[in-house]
């Protein structure tokens, strides 16, 4: 939630953050259009399958089961023609760094049987601590890998439609899709603001100047959001919106979907039994 860094990189860091998100969205659009195995499946099967695998990987206390789910995900990555490099950059290294940082002190703080002493500092490393840290890391990596499989192989619109199948209220699906659509508009707008400001910047800014800039950008964004919401409202009115929301639901199960569902059900049963 926070990080220390020099004041010089404040704009650049935020621009990089935004760029990363926009890149991620572009990448997801491209990969979900590939002719891989998961891309061909019905989104409802994928959502259900991802939930089964994540809950299975998280709930088991057996690391072999978590490992098996991870290997299964690796197989799916290959069959869905997704890039391992993309996974390494976007998921595995990020989770390793973030969760690793959180899990590392646990190997020293967890009481238990000492298996090693850290050279020079002589801090004891306990067997229980190593197990705890390793388990946390394995679970987080596996769950993130499965979640990214769903994200990278399913177009957002399909994902939204499949949420209706899981009884999510129509009004929420509508707001979700609207939020997603205008989110990118706001992100592009923010990136333009920051680029424009950054190209006119000479030297360093004091923290108070940075705060002023951030507050003014967010104030303009707020103003733009409210103005946009009025425009969208008028557009809805002009198209005859009466408060009734309808969305197209045209998914149909094919043979491969039934087969995938059977495989996933088997995996779910196995996970429950192994638990």
């Amino acid at each position: 939630m926070f990080r220390r860094k020099s004041s010089f990189g404040f704009l650049e860091k935020t621009i990089a953050n935004l760029g990363e998100i926009l890149n991620h969205a572009d990448q997801a659009t491209l990969t979900s259009g590939e002719k891989g195995m998961l891309q061909q499946l019905d989104p409802r099967v994928k959502v259900g399958g991802a939930l089964v695998l994540i809950v299975g990987a998280v709930s088991t206390s057996d690391l072999w089961v978590t490992g098996a789910v991870f290997l299964f995900s690796i197989l799916m990555i290959a069959l869905s023609r997704l890039s391992f490099r993309l996974y390494l950059e976007r998921t595995w290294l990020g989770v390793l760094f973030f969760t690793g940082l959180i899990a590392l002190p646990a190997i020293f703080t967890t009481p238990g049987v000492t298996i090693f002493h850290l050279p020079l500092l002589h801090w004891p490393i306990s067997s229980q601590g190593v197990q705890s840290a390793w388990r946390l890391l394995a679970r987080a990596e596996t769950a993130a890998t499965v979640a990214m499989l769903l994200i990278l192989t399913t177009p957002w619109t399909h994902l939204l439609k499949s949420l209706r199948f899981f009884r999510l209220p129509v009004i929420i699906v509508t707001i979700l899709s609207m939020t997603h659509r205008y989110l990118f508009l706001l992100l592009h707008l923010t990136q333009n603001f920051l680029d424009a400001r950054s190209s006119r910047k000479v030297g360093r800014w004091s923290p108070s100047q940075q705060r002023e800039l951030t507050a003014s950008i967010l104030a303009v964004l707020l103003s733009r959001s409210l103005q946009l919401s009025e425009e969208v409202y008028l557009a809805m009115q002009s198209r005859g919106f009466t408060g009734e929301i309808h969305i197209l639901d045209e998914f149909c199960f094919r043979k491969r979907d039934w087969l995938s569902m059977m495989i996933l059900t088997t995996i779910a049963v196995l996970l429950i039994m192994l638990r």
Partner: peptide, 14 residues
Amino acid sequence: VPRIALLSALSFVI
């Protein structure tokens, strides 16, 4: 509806 959606998007940007 659009107001919640847009302010939700703003929360994401924040």
